[in-house]
Write a protein that binds this DNA or RNA. Structure first.
Length: 207
DNA sequence: GGAGGTCAGATTTTGGTCCG
DNA sequence: CGGACCAAAATCTGACCTCC
C-alpha cells in the first residue's frame, strides 16, 4: 500500500491538481506538539482510539477544543495516513532518535502530505538557491502565491490577507523544520541531512 | 469537519540616546 | 567614534471563531 503516491511527480494537469489549502496557517511545524503526540501514542491501539484518548486526556494541554481539533487534523494528514509511518515515528521518538534527524524526518512527511509546502520548496526556494540567492523575502513568496491563486491552484480564491498569512506560515514552518533560518528575514539554511534521517527516508521510499 | 478569517500576546527589528 | 542599552514600532505566530 501507499506506493501509488510515488507515481505523481509534477503533473499540474487540470484534471487532478493538488489543491493548495491554507492549512499551513494554523499548523506550522508543530514540532513540539508532534513529539508530544508521538510519545503518547499507543501502537497497540488504532488511530481513532488513540485520537479519542488524546482528546480526552488533553495531552496537549490546550485551552480549547477547537485548537486541539485543528492540530489533530493536521497530524492526521501528515503522519497518520499510513499505519507504518506512525509506528516508525513512535519508535523513533521513544528511543530518543536525535532531534535534528527527527525534525528532518517529520519535515519529509509533512512535505509529502501538503502539496503547498512541497511546491513552495521546489518552486520557490530551490530556484533561488540555484542562483545563489539565500535571502528569502516574504513579499517574494507572496507574489508567487498570488500567482498560484490566480491560476486557480488553491481550494478557493484566497484574499490578499490570506495569501500574506500563508506566506508567513510557509516560511515559519520551513524555518521550524530547519530549512530556513531567521525570524523575520529568512535565509536558506545550509543543507543538513543527518545520516540517520537519510537512512530512514531512503528505507521508507524503498518500501 | 474543513476552510478562511480575526485577535492578541510574544518576539524582532529599528531608531535613538548615552557612555566610555 | 564605536559600542551598549533601551523603548517604540513592526511583524510573527499560536489560538480561537464563524461559516459552509
Amino acid at each position: 500500500m501507499a506506493v501509488q503516491k510515488a507515481t505523481k511527480k509534477k503533473g499540474v494537469s487540470a484534471s487532478a491538481p493538488p489543491p493548495y489549502t491554507s492549512k499551513i496557517i494554523k499548523a506550522s511545524a508543530l514540532l513540539d506538539d508532534t513529539k508530544t503526540l508521538l510519545s503518547h501514542w499507543d501502537v497497540t491501539a488504532t488511530v481513532p482510539e488513540n485520537l479519542d484518548r488524546i482528546r480526552r486526556e488533553n495531552v496537549f494541554a490546550k485551552a480549547s477544543r477547537s485548537r486541539v481539533e485543528d492540530i489533530l487534523a493536521v497530524f492526521r494528514q501528515r503522519y497518520l495516513v499510513e499505519a507504518d509511518v506512525v509506528k516508525a515515528l513512535v519508535v523513533l521518538v521513544k528511543n530518543r532518535f536525535p532531534a535534528a534527524s527527527l525534525d528532518r524526518v517529520l519535515y519529509f512527511h509533512a512535505a509529502r502530505a501538503d502539496a503547498l509546502l512541497h511546491d513552495a520548496v521546489t518552486e520557490i526556494l530551490m530556484p533561488r538557491q540555484a542562483q545563489g540567492i539565500t535571502d528569502i523575502e516574504p513579499v517574494a513568496v507572496q507574489r508567487v502565491l498570488a500567482k498560484w491563486v490566480e491560476k486557480g491552484l488553491t481550494t478557493t480564491a484566497w484574499s490578499e490577507n490570506t495569501t500574506v498569512r500563508v506566506a508567513q506560515g510557509l516560511l515559519s514552518t520551513l524555518r521550524d523544520f530547519g530549512v530556513l533560518q531567521g525570524a523575520v528575514n529568512k535565509r536558506i539554511a545550509p543543507a543538513y541531512m543527518p545520516v540517520t534521517a537519510f537512512a530512514y527516508i531512503a528505507f521508507y521510499l524503498k518500501q
